[in-house]
């Protein structure tokens, strides 16, 4: 009796191991950020068909999603990503800088700064906009609750933060053009005001989730807060998934052009022998089919001419600035605002 039990257990174990064994088809792993789940689900299926149809054979694409900073960290710690499709260039920069898995000039390898689609930051409010939230300065009104993820772990949250900062700068200076030609004293005074403004917003934040999807769930599912600072695509998606009768989008007077970037992780892809597939996978994002899918999932395509006009018409017109104009690029912005001891720490830890 006892030995037959042992045999049963052992055979189960072997069975489990055998079942868990990988199949022989080539696999690529795409490590992405939070709100791209739905897009890549559809895009992967599309690309697998395309690859098969063009004679490449059957392939498998694996996905991993989470807050962009956390995901970058995981790749650095050894998550074997063949391609990364993260929320902002800086997260990929860090991987390149710390691990050497990809070259430092990765962003020049694909068109449009390696951003096949862009997005921006908008406000999601409850239906009818009961708090009458119209622009960034409404967020600091007494009693209002603002939901945003944690800029330390979430890419979207960093875009939120910088957009709010730039709004305050513009309010002080009247423009965001040619900031480097301004009198340093004037600029310094304006930045002080901007910091006070962003600090004021964070006083209204009751919870900081780690990723954009966590924040969306906090706002939408748990019903916490009056306004969610969200990726445009995430805002559209929640309205789509959870009913236009519950939420609406408010477009602020100015927002940031968010460029989620993609890159091959050269050394991983080479080690797995899937470099050609991984490269084609990223290039196909810029194809008419890839662009059409991006627009369908509420990302602003790099080549709008390939997308359905119907999808394009959904995007509201909004004044967008680039991070390079106002913050001198991601490296600098990260250092000033989000690294240890940056403005976010000074605001949040005080």
């Amino acid at each position: 009796m006892r030995s037959s039990h042992k045999i049963l257990l052992l055979s189960l174990l072997v069975l489990g191991l055998a079942a868990g064994k990988k199949n022989a088809d080539p696999e690529i792993l795409n490590v992405s950020y939070d709100p791209t789940r739905e897009f890549y689900k559809e895009y992967n299926a599309e690309f697998m068909n395309y690859w098969k149809a063009t004679g490449g054979g059957k392939i498998v694409i694996k996905q991993s999603h989470g807050g962009a900073g956390k995901q970058a960290r995981a790749v650095m710690d050894g998550l074997p990503a063949d391609v990364v499709t993260l929320a902002l260039a800086y997260d990929i920069d860090v991987i390149a800088e710390r691990t050497g898995l990809l070259p430092a000039d990765w962003s020049t390898r694909l068109p449009n700064n390696s951003a096949p689609y862009t997005s921006t930051i908008v406000f999601l409010v409850r239906k009818g906009n009961p708090e009458n939230i119209r622009d960034w300065d409404d967020l600091v009104r007494p009693g209002l609750e603002v939901i945003t993820p944690n800029p330390k772990t979430s890419g979207g949250a960093r875009w939120n933060y910088l957009a709010a900062w730039a709004f305050a700068l513009k309010r002080e200076l009247g423009t965001l053009k040619d900031l480097d030609k301004l009198d340093p004293a004037v600029m310094k005074a304006a930045e002080k005001k901007a910091m006070a403004f962003v600090s004021g917003i964070f006083e209204h934040v009751p919870v900081l989730d780690a990723g954009a999807r966590g924040s969306t769930n906090t706002f939408v599912q748990r019903g916490i807060g009056d306004v969610l600072l969200a990726w445009e695509n995430e805002a559209f998606l929640s309205i789509n998934e959870l009913g236009p009768e519950n939420f609406e989008i408010v477009v602020p007077s100015i927002s940031i052009l968010a460029e989620p970037s993609v890159s091959l992780v050269d050394k991983n892809a080479e080690a797995h022998g899937v470099k050609a597939i991984a490269e084609a996978y990223l290039q196909y994002l810029y194809s008419p089919a890839g662009q059409r899918l991006a627009a369908k999932h509420y990302y602003r395509p790099a080549y709008p001419q390939f997308a359905d006009a119907k999808d394009i018409s959904r995007f509201p017109r909004v004044e967008l600035f680039r991070i390079d104009e106002v913050f001198g690029g991601w490296q600098k912005a990260q250092k000033t605002h989000f690294n240890d001891g940056g403005t976010f720490d000074r605001i949040y830890l005080k």
Partner: peptide, 14 residues
Amino acid sequence: FGAVSVVSGHIRGE
């Protein structure tokens, strides 16, 4: 959940 979530990498199907 917690410990596994940290070391998993969240790769679907794997």
